[in-house]
């Protein structure tokens, strides 16, 4: 078994907080009408934050770098764990979104919903919030591998600005389509989602590379 897989196992069995798994359930918020459902993505990230915090309290980073692995492997493992949780939450949200876009397109609370509806744009925003977390929080954490207060506060501020912007956007004349419930056949909406997938993959990849370089410079 490769070190990267063993380290992901270590993240899951030893470093992870149960809250990381529990908070995946916030992806179910995609069902709630009249609520800023993107906040669910923020809570998923908050769950991952709990694991980083628990890891720090349990000397997880020191334990990891003392194992016969490289420091870069330790960084990759944290990113892999975060992406795993994010993808599980995304999968839950994607299933709910598909249900809403196929079976519930005419459901009154959703059709008249003044807040964000679950559609491809919502999934795209969700991915952007995850990318933001990986970039701002995880990338920031590995500057010291110890201090995470500032990176997390920065993530909170930027993610809430993004949530507000996403809620405002579909009220702007001409952009109402971003909140439609019947967008299953919309090429524009699928393109928006595809673009978000691309952006989040690139941002996370670059952030991980930067974090590896930062962590290499850290004295334990």
């Amino acid at each position: 078994m490769k070190n990267s897989r063993k380290l992901l196992g270590k993240e899951i069995k030893l470093a992870a907080s149960p809250l990381s798994w529990l908070f995946i359930s916030f992806a179910l918020m995609a069902f709630i009408p009249g609520y800023p459902i993107l906040v669910g993505a923020f809570f998923v990230c908050f769950g991952i934050f709990q694991s980083v915090q628990s890891g720090r309290e349990n000397n997880d980073i020191l334990y990891t770098v003392l194992l016969p692995v490289s420091k870069t492997d330790a960084v990759k493992a944290k990113y892999r764990f975060a992406v795993l949780i994010e993808m599980l939450a995304f999968a839950v949200s994607a299933i709910i979104t598909m249900i809403r876009m196929t079976l519930m397109t005419q459901t009154t609370p959703y059709v008249t919903n003044p807040m964000m509806n679950a559609n491809q744009a919502y999934l795209a925003y969700m991915l952007l919030i995850f990318a933001l977390f990986n970039w701002v929080f995880l990338g920031g954490f590995f500057k010291t591998a110890y201090k995470f207060g500032f990176p997390f506060v920065l993530f909170i501020v930027i993610s809430f600005l993004l949530i507000i912007a996403a809620e405002v956007l579909h009220h702007i004349p001409g952009l109402e389509f971003l909140n439609r419930t019947d967008t299953l056949g919309s090429t524009t909406m699928w393109t928006i989602l595809a673009a978000a997938v691309g952006i989040s993959v690139i941002v996370t990849f670059i952030s991980c590379k930067v974090a590896m370089k930062r962590f290499e410079r850290v004295d334990m």
């Binding site: 063993k6 196992g9 016969p68």
Partner: peptide, 26 residues
């Protein structure tokens, strides 16, 4: 092998769980 005097890892996890993970690396 390294041991620090006062450092402990995963203080609330059972030793057997810590060992089950640790041994896979060696």
């Amino acid at each position: 092998g390294y041991a620090g005097g006062a450092v402990d890892y995963y203080k609330k996890k059972k030793i057997k769980k810590i060992i089950s993970v640790t041994k896979t690396f060696y």
